[in-house]
Computed example of a mutant assay.
Amino acid sequence: MPEPEPTAPSPEEIRRRNVEFFLDRAEEALHQGLLIYPAGASAYDYYLRARQLDPDNRRAAGGIQAIVIEFVERARNALRKRSFGEVNTYLSRAEELAPGNPLVMEVRAQLARELSRARQDLPQGESLELPVGQLDAKSDAVVALLHRAAERIRNDGLRVIIVARTDAEGRWIYQQLREAVPGYRVRGDIKLGSPPRLLLQLGGNTE
């Protein structure tokens, strides 16, 4: 007696299997740190596909919430380092995934307070921004920019506040300023902040 042919899966069974497939791929991508990139193969993209097939799926909703929380935590860490540009980047990504999320709004408020304090901590002066990419590479172009700034500091008797993302970066910038004007004492201070820049102020050397 011939065996009965297997029954084809129902549309509901196909949908359920696809949901499970996308959820498994999402969690694998999440484990690898592929939160929103690459496009089409990120944890967020897979969770989104699962939700399109099953809008009330709790695993998909929880996974997207986990991604939002990860970006919020990264923003908080950046805020502790006073890397304000990074904070805004992470919060913007979180807001794209979950508009109006209370955690994002809370950190956004903290960022506003820290920016206000930073403005009070940094006296007004002419701001000279340092290109981040060139600064990271310690390129000849940024060294030349710092040398020109040092000559102006010496010639105009200015004081400088170096705003840097890290202590090491601030010390490197100060070293470039000193080496550009040997024998001259560059007066100033280093403060952590972002974006990196020089604040040139009156009241430097009077010698």
Rank of each mutant, 00 (worst) to 15 (best):
37 Y>E: 14
73 E>T: 13
45 D>V: 05
89 T>I: 11
42 S>F: 10
75 A>N: 04
48 L>E: 10
37 Y>K: 12
33 G>T: 14
86 E>V: 05
83 S>R: 07
94 A>L: 08
94 A>Q: 03
40 G>T: 06
57 N>C: 09
80 R>F: 08
36 I>C: 05
55 P>H: 05
80 R>A: 13
80 R>T: 05
71 F>E: 02
69 I>H: 14
37 Y>I: 02
34 L>H: 14
80 R>L: 10
81 K>V: 01
58 R>Y: 09
91 L>E: 02
79 L>N: 05
60 A>Y: 08
78 A>H: 01
39 A>R: 13
64 I>G: 01
69 I>M: 12
71 F>M: 09
42 S>D: 09
50 A>E: 02
70 E>D: 10
75 A>Q: 06
75 A>I: 03
87 V>T: 04
63 G>N: 02
84 F>P: 02
87 V>W: 00
87 V>I: 10
66 A>C: 09
40 G>P: 01
74 R>H: 11
58 R>C: 01
80 R>S: 06
65 Q>R: 15
52 Q>D: 13
66 A>M: 10
41 A>C: 08
76 R>P: 00
89 T>D: 11
63 G>R: 02
84 F>T: 08
49 R>M: 14
76 R>V: 07
79 L>I: 13
46 Y>T: 02
81 K>G: 03
74 R>C: 03
48 L>D: 08
64 I>R: 05
90 Y>L: 01
38 P>T: 02
62 G>D: 15
64 I>C: 08
61 A>L: 15
50 A>R: 01
74 R>I: 04
71 F>R: 00
95 E>G: 03
79 L>C: 03
83 S>W: 07
70 E>V: 07
66 A>D: 14
55 P>N: 02
74 R>W: 06
64 I>H: 04
81 K>C: 03
69 I>N: 12
35 L>I: 08
67 I>H: 00
48 L>Y: 05
47 Y>R: 00
77 N>E: 14
62 G>R: 10
68 V>S: 05
59 R>N: 04
81 K>A: 11
92 S>K: 08
84 F>L: 12
35 L>F: 15
45 D>M: 03
71 F>N: 02
76 R>H: 06
57 N>I: 12
37 Y>G: 06
47 Y>W: 12
34 L>F: 13
39 A>F: 12
86 E>F: 07
63 G>H: 04
49 R>N: 10
94 A>C: 01
76 R>W: 02
50 A>P: 00
47 Y>Q: 00
71 F>D: 01
84 F>V: 06
82 R>W: 08
77 N>Q: 14
52 Q>E: 14
54 D>S: 13
55 P>S: 04
45 D>W: 07
81 K>P: 00
50 A>S: 07
39 A>Y: 11
89 T>C: 04
36 I>V: 15
54 D>I: 06
44 Y>A: 05
77 N>K: 10
45 D>F: 08
40 G>A: 11
54 D>E: 14
91 L>V: 09
72 V>D: 03
92 S>M: 04
94 A>S: 04
47 Y>K: 01
57 N>H: 14
37 Y>H: 10
70 E>Y: 12
35 L>Y: 15
60 A>M: 13
77 N>S: 13
